[in-house]
Amino acid sequence: MTTAYGPLLDALRGVRWPARRAVGAALPGAHRSRQRGTSGEFTEYRLYRQGDDPRQLDWKLLGRSDRAFVRLTDDRALVSTWFVLDASLSMAFPDERHALPGAPPSKWQVARALAVGLGTVANASTDPVGALIATADGTTSIAARTRRGTVGEIARALDALQCGGDTSMAPLLAMAPVRARIVVISDLLGDLDAMVRATAQRTAAGSIVECLHVVAAEELTLPTGAYLARDPEQPQVERVLESRAVVAYRERFDAFRAEAARRWRGAGAGYTEVRTDAPLARVIRQITSGQSRLEAQHDLGARQEMRDDSHERRAR
């Protein structure tokens, strides 16, 4: 692993990243499992039903109350974490070669740091960590492993990659195991519809999908002056960027991000918007603690309220 990630990993010491819902049966791990097992950690009683294992009956309680109860305990299980990264040309914005000192990193740099940071956090909980990277040349796959050098291997693979082309992310979602935590790191400017559909299928199958939407600060604050804006992935898309067009651009981009968040959450996935000028350690802490979801829900509620207010005003 390169030394560039050192400060970030130092800031993430002790951070845990529990699955945001109970995982299925698996090897013993750190995540709450849906499996009611035989561990010593008591959870609750339940009336005995026909077919239950008689060995789980609480005989003392049966003696006191003359009613048969089954003693339930929670199980802990591992969950493999797969990072699905978008290495399309749009992720290489802004160009690292022409970046000024102190300028925000590119979207690809942020995506790499997110993958390494979250992978390190997940691997610290003995979770297997793997990666699927969509590049112009195809898919780069790094199998999920628990051993300590896995994250370093992922970091080296990411550092060696060069963004390019117009990639498709949806097929990569199908490549990850069903009972896994899938972290999609992308700017969502590619095949968004296909990704959302694939995500809905994966979540229905039991996967935990997290979407980290990387947004460049330069995309939110456009440069002043007149430019001919060109989509690097679709050169035929040319638009004039001038001061009068910025307002409409912001409205459309905000609407796109809100719609993306709504659709990802509607598909059962988590959605977190990551700006390139935001401190990455804090962003990762928010992701691992679930705070970003709460903030997102709060933002969503606030937006809904604003929307309702505006509707009421229009109705009046």
């Binding site: 914005f93 400017l189 007149a226 989509d231 898309v237 040319e238 004039v240 409409a248 981009f253």
Partner: peptide, 14 residues
């Protein structure tokens, strides 16, 4: 033609 700017979100411009 004005100066060119590579902008992945150019599709959101008019």
């Amino acid at each position: 033609r004005p100066a060119e700017l590579l902008l992945p979100t150019a599709r959101f411009l008019d």
